[in-house]
Nucleic acid binder design. Structure first.
Length: 878
RNA sequence: GCCGGAGUGGCGGAAUUGGCAGACGCGCGGGAUUCAAAAUCCCGUCAUGGCAACAUGGUGUGGGUUCAAGUCCCACCUCCGGUACCA
């Protein structure tokens, strides 16, 4: 061995321990243990061709530190990783090159796995999941079948098997109304015997029964408007449409209804809001979800159309402003538009409807600074005062919210106000502010009713209550709730996704595959491009598409595939029992591991992924497959890592940092430490390569503290003798602070504290072995490779991974002597040193004895002396 | 526009939640070691004035509460993130 050979060789050390952990299956975790469980989950990555980005390891490092810390504290820790591997990039690459997406995906997974492994995370690699693996998506399809075969029981507010609904219908506990609603045959509900106009189950023919059941399923088919590009022969996502043209090629895109699969997430809207109370998430994320769901309470009101039998129902949150409704607006797509439009207006209305159809949802909002609209020529009757009000159409009213129609109160709604100004419509004020005398042009707040007949003088809340009753008494309105949340459009016209386990019979009947027929795997195709008919490439594979059922009838497979969200909706459950081929997970194991104790991931998934998986979880809960109402107990969103220029990292800016480079130059431990040292986990912060060097220097310092770099053996200055008082104090302070900082996710200050301890230890002539061991132990969750290596060099045989977290003594961590600031009127005049156990009187005497203090208070009267033990003394003078 | 979050040295950030502002790290300046360099170590580093002890000011801006404010209250400015006519 040559001088210097024993220096900190991170590459060898890190490789050595990564191999050691792998070969010894150090982090493979058992489902049976006496220890308390702890489930730490990372948002699993999409295996992109670009590989890992420095943003990924931030969350992964944080969760790994917690996982390792919890292991050392006696928990049985489940810490898995997997691959969210369906996705557009692999499919686009397939369209361009003909390479099977599975092949691209596998290459990318291999690369990303190598990168993740090179960071030394303590994942249980036996539990990897891959959403594109048919052994995995078999169960994604299984959950889809659960959705398809369930309905939502409104009275119990939970999902139930649709077979139970059939039983209730057959036994005539429920009837079906002509407009497809369920009503109870219960005598309380239907006082005078049989509900009028409702059908008993046997009164419906087979097709009607099927149609009715389909209308109740949590997964259903519907015609919904999509971005259809005839030129490209495909449906486009909203992001792929720019200014009404396709992003690629610039071809026109129209909003066209097409057959799509939908999931009835809206049935869970209330529970998705209410159960946020049960989880420990950042307030801002909860609010984001609540706003997304957008529950609003108000009333539905029927307006008669003058000269027609039809009525138009509107939804309003302000029924108290009914007297101010001076006109009405329908969405251009509203079905009654064509019925009520007068002959002289037909042309203009149709022109407007076509124009609206050409615009995407985004354009309808973004580009229109001025309100547009057309009068239909028809009039409605305001039910509160029988006034005739004009009916307009305008694209500021959305067909997909509420009833697709509004009553317009231009005096108290900004959008209506703007519209009325634009077209010179009447504005009547019906609310005045509570205390304000001045009339505000468009007052949208609560106040007191005016110009509202017998309701004048009522406060907004009271008015709402009374008018709703008034409407209900006359059967022209009722209380109603609406949500911004829409049913989830669940189908994509793509190849690279989970196929739906659904068959369409020739007579139109929809049949689900039996669970025993799963998985329904993807066929091989020649060409990955869309079929051109709005269908996926699957529609072009006749051998896969056409099926003959056992009874001889012919059917076609569903050619849509599921969106990328599907696989990520439940992966945290599969980790619990990833090899199980008989069921998605074992019940006992689920009870043991769930819920996820800590979930770390990017804030970009704050709404959709978390909402969708909560929805699926609630379905599974209702059906008895999972034991918790909510899947994720605690959620942390790591902030974004920016380039050194403070900008978002991107190829075009040339500020992307590749983790491989950092690991090659400084090692995984330095990388991990730096990611955590940058600042608070949840904040976004810029990368600075020089600071990486800083934490690297710290690790080198720890290494030299323990190791003689010439021999590579434990340094002769490390001795087995008791530490001095100061050292003991710093050790105990460090154990305490690092532990509590990890529990609170303050990794940056935990590292600072270890630096303080190390800076002290290197100054000592001899290093007490116990001090060194404590430092290594508390460093190990953050920088596990160097810690394991030093631990071993100190003669320890076992991995540090399950070594108990060092204990600290509160008394020993305390300062014996305290330095207090002495202030006069809040300004520091001097500092004094007192014993930690000094009482207030003693502190006072010492403080007043200070020359600088006596000088400062000379000639003044002392009014008060404030003593904050261990902090300061403040002398208040006249 | 609306809703969140944040503004602290040259930079990243600390500050027991109302109690010594700037911990820790980067950078920078000076020094030691070295033939020299790298590495390492030591000293300094908020601003202004002063050789210095020290004094004064200082946490986006303006006001307020308090013995005491980065922290609490009111108004405003800037940046970042989300959202987009949801009646």
């Amino acid at each position: 061995m040559n001088p210097g050979d024993g220096k900190y060789n991170f590459s060898d050390i890190e490789k050595k321990w990564q191999n050691h952990w792998e070969q010894n299956k150090t982090f493979s975790v058992s489902d049976e243990s006496d220890k308390p469980k702890y489930y730490v989950l990372d948002m699993f990555p999409y295996p992109s061709g670009a590989g890992l980005h420095v943003g990924h390891p931030e969350g992964y490092t944080a969760s790994d530190i917690v996982a390792r810390y919890k292991r050392m504290n006696g928990f049985n820790v489940l810490h898995p990783i997997g691959w969210d591997a369906f996705g557009l990039p692999a499919e686009q690459y397939a369209i361009a090159t003909g390479t099977h997406p599975a092949k691209t995906t596998q290459t990318n997974i291999d690369n990303m796995r190598r990168q993740i492994k090179s960071l030394g995370f303590s994942y249980d690699w036996n539990r990897q999941v891959d959403t594109t693996d048919e052994k995995y998506y078999k169960w994604t399809q299984w959950i889809f079948l659960k959705l398809f075969n369930s309905y939502f029981d409104e009275t119990e507010q939970k999902a139930k098997p649709i077979s139970e609904l059939v039983k209730k219908l057959e036994s005539e506990k429920l009837y079906v109304t002509p407009d497809g609603l369920l009503i109870a045959s219960d005598p309380i509900q239907a006082i005078s015997g049989e509900p009028i106009g409702a059908f008993k189950w046997f009164e419906l023919d087979n097709q009607q029964q099927q149609e009715f059941l389909d209308s109740q399923r949590l997964a259903y088919e519907a015609n919904v408007p999509v971005n259809w590009c005839p030129e490209l022969g495909t449906v486009l996502a909203n992001e792929e449409v720019i200014g009404g043209k396709s992003e690629r090629g610039g071809h026109p895109v129209i909003r066209q209804p097409m057959r799509q699969w939908m999931l009835r997430i809206t049935k869970y809207a209330d529970r998705l809001v209410d159960d946020l109370e049960l989880v420990d998430w950042a307030h801002s994320i909860k609010k984001l979800q609540t706003d997304w769901i957008g529950k609003s309470t108000g009333a539905e009101v029927d307006f008669a159309v003058d000269g027609f039998d039809e009525t138009i129902t509107v939804f309003t949150t302000r029924p108290d402003t009914l007297f101010g409704a001076t006109y009405m607006v329908l969405a251009p797509e509203h079905p009654l538009v064509n019925v009520i439009t007068t002959a002289d207006k037909k042309k203009a209305v149709q022109k407007y409807q076509t124009a609206a159809q050409m615009k995407s949802d985004l354009d309808r909002t973004d580009l229109s600074k001025d309100k547009t609209g057309v009068h239909t020529g028809a009039f409605a009757i305001n039910p509160v005062n029988n006034k005739k009000i004009p009916i307009w159409i305008s694209d500021y009213v959305l067909i997909s919210y509420g009833t697709g129609a509004i009553m317009s109160v231009p005096a108290h709604d900004e959008r209506d106000h703007e519209f009325a100004k634009q077209f010179g419509l009447e504005i009547i004020e019906v609310v005045k502010p509570n205390n304000d005398k001045t009339i505000i042009p468009c007052f949208t707040g609560d106040g007191v009713a005016i110009n509202s007949g017998q309701f004048d003088g009522l406060g907004t809340d009271e008015f709402k209550k009374q008018i709703t009753e008034w409407l209900e008494d006359r059967a022209i309105g009722k209380k109603a709730v609406n949500y911004k949340l829409r049913d989830w459009l669940f189908s994509r016209q793509r190849y690279w996704g989970e196929p739906f386990p659904i068959l369409h019979k020739e007579d139109g009947e929809i049949v689900a595959l039996d669970e025993s027929q799963l998985p329904l795997t993807l066929p091989e195709v020649e060409n990955y491009a869309p079929a051109g008919t709005g269908e996926s490439p699957l529609a072009t594979i006749d051998s896969w598409l056409n099926v003959t059922l056992p009874d001889g009838t012919k059917a076609k497979r569903e050619t849509n595939t599921m969106p990328q969200w599907a696989g990520s909706c439940w992966y945290y459950l599969r980790y619990i029992d990833p090899q199980n081929d008989a069921e998605p997970w074992n019940e006992e194991k689920e009870k043991y591991w769930m819920p996820v104790d800590l979930y770390i991931g990017g804030a970009e998934h704050a709404v959709l992924h978390l909402l969708y998986s909560r929805f699926w979880h609630k379905l599974l809960y209702d059906l008895g497959y999972v034991s918790t109402k909510e899947p994720f107990k605690k959620l942390i969103n790591q902030g974004m890592i920016l380039g050194s220029d403070g900008q978002k990292m991107s190829k075009s800016r040339g500020n992307v940092v590749n983790p491989d480079t950092v690991i090659a130059n400084y090692g995984a431990d330095s990388m991990r430490l730096y990611e955590m040292f940058m600042g608070p986990l949840e904040a976004s912060k810029p990368w600075n390569m020089q600071s990486v060097e800083g934490v690297h220097r710290f690790l080198t310092k720890v290494w030299r503290l323990a190791i003689d770099i010439d021999t590579g053996r434990i340094s002769s200055s490390v001795i087995d003798s008791p530490a001095d008082e100061q050292t003991i104090k710093l050790i105990h302070q460090a154990i305490k602070k690092v532990g509590s900082d990890i529990e609170n996710f303050h990794f940056n200050t935990a590292i600072s504290q270890m630096m303080i301890l190390t800076n002290h230890l290197v100054k000592l002539d001899s290093v007490p072995k116990q001090a060194l061991k404590a430092l290594i132990a508390i460093l190990s969750p953050l920088a596990p490779h160097i810690a394991e290596e030093l631990w071993q060099k100190l003669g320890e045989k076992n991995t540090l991974a399950y070594e108990p977290w060092p204990k600290y003594d509160e008394l020993l961590a305390k300062e014996k002597q305290l330095e207090l600031a002495v202030q006069v009127l809040g300004k520091i005049k001097d500092k004094i040193v007192v014993n930690a156990d000094a009482d207030e009187e003693q502190i006072k005497q010492i403080a007043l004895a200070s020359e600088k203090v006596t000088a400062a208070i000379a000639g003044k009267e002392i009014k008060k002396i404030i003593i904050i033990k261990s902090r300061l003394v403040n002398i208040v003078t006249e």
